[in-house]
Computed example of a mutant assay.
Amino acid sequence: MTRKPVRRNSKTSKSTPFYWSKPFIVIVIVFILSVFLYTKRDALAYYLSFKTDRVPLETRQASLSEVIKVHNEKAFGLDVSEYQERINWDLLSDLETGNPIEFIFIRATAGSNKTDSKFHKYWGKARETNMYQGAYHYYRPNENSIDQANNYIKTVKLKKGDFPPVLDIEKLPRHQSIDSLKVGLQRWLDKVEKHYGVKPIIYSSESYYNDFLKNDFEDYPFWIANYTAFYHDIDSDWSLWQITENGKIEGIRGCVDVNVYNGTTKDLKELLMK
C-alpha cells in the first residue's frame, strides 16, 4: 500500500538559548542566594546558633568601643594563651577606650597531658601586675576527665584573690553520648572543687550553654562567649561575657579576647578565691 507523504512544518523550531536554560537559571538563583546569606551571616549566626530570650541591641556591627561604652561601669579583662606569642606586660594596662584592664585569664592546660607553653611565664608576669588572674583548662571530651583534672591540679597553684578554676568546654564528643559527656564534666568539676575548695567557673559559647549546660550545671558561675550579639543587659546567670576575639591591645601582638565582668570591680571581688 502506498503511504501518503508526511508533510513537515516548514517553520523550524527555535531552541532555547543556553543562557535561559533551566540549569543556568538555577545556578544564578543559587549564586544570588549565597551572596545574600553571606552578607547576613552574622545575623543568621545569632538567630540560628546564639538565640536567647533576650533581645540584642543589634547583631555585631558596633565597634568594641561602643560595646564598652554601654557597659562602662563594669570591669573588663582579657584571656590569653600560647597563641599570643609576644606580650609586653609593661604596656598592658588599658583598653582602647582608656578603661583599665582589671583581670586576665591564662590557659593553663588542655586535655590529660598538655600544659600551655606560655602558662608559667605568663602566670608569673601577671603576678607582677595589678590585675586579678585566673587559669583555665581546655577540656577534651574524648579524654579521661579525672586525668584532665589531675593535669590542671598539678599545673595550677591558686591563692587568695585569684579567680576560681575555669573549665573551658567547647567541643562535642565523637565516641560518647551527651549524657556521658556531662558525667565527665561533673567528675572534673567535683575533683577540682575538692582540691581548691571553691566551685569552678564554666566557659562555653552561648549556644553550647543553652543546648547542653544551662539546665544541668546551674549552680556554677558561667563565662559565656558570644561575638554576634550586642546586649544592653547581660544575662544575670552569666558572671562573664566574652565579647570579641579580635581585640587590639597595646602590648599584645595580634588579636586577643576581651571580656566584661557582669558587675563592678567591687562585685568582681566577690567571685575571687577567699
Rank of each mutant, 00 (worst) to 15 (best):
A135E: 03
Y136M: 08
Y136R: 05
Y136L: 06
H137Q: 07
Y138H: 13
Y138L: 14
P141R: 09
P141Q: 12
N142F: 12
N142P: 06
N144R: 07
S145I: 12
D147Q: 14
Q148M: 05
N151V: 04
N151Y: 03
K154E: 10
T155Y: 00
T155Q: 02
K157G: 02
K157Q: 09
K157S: 09
K157P: 01
L158Y: 03
K159A: 12
K159M: 10
K160A: 12
D162H: 09
D162L: 05
P165F: 10
P165K: 11
V166K: 01
L167A: 09
L172I: 07
P173C: 00
R174Y: 14
Q176G: 00
S177E: 03
S177N: 04
I178Y: 01
V183G: 02
L189R: 03
D190T: 15
E193D: 05
K194D: 10
H195G: 00
Y196C: 01
V198Q: 03
K199V: 06
P200C: 09
E206L: 12
S207G: 13
Y208Q: 03
Y209H: 10
N210D: 08
N210V: 01
D211Y: 08
L213P: 02
K214I: 11
D216S: 14
D219V: 11
Y220C: 08
P221G: 13
F222I: 13
W223G: 01
W223C: 06
W223P: 00
I224N: 01
A225H: 06
Y227F: 14
Y231G: 09
S236E: 15
D237V: 12
W238E: 02
S239M: 08
W241H: 05
W241F: 05
Q242I: 10
I243P: 13
E245F: 12
N246K: 15
G247C: 06
E250K: 14
E250F: 03
I252N: 07
G254K: 08
G254E: 11
V256A: 11
D257E: 13
D257F: 10
V260M: 03
V260Q: 04
T264F: 06
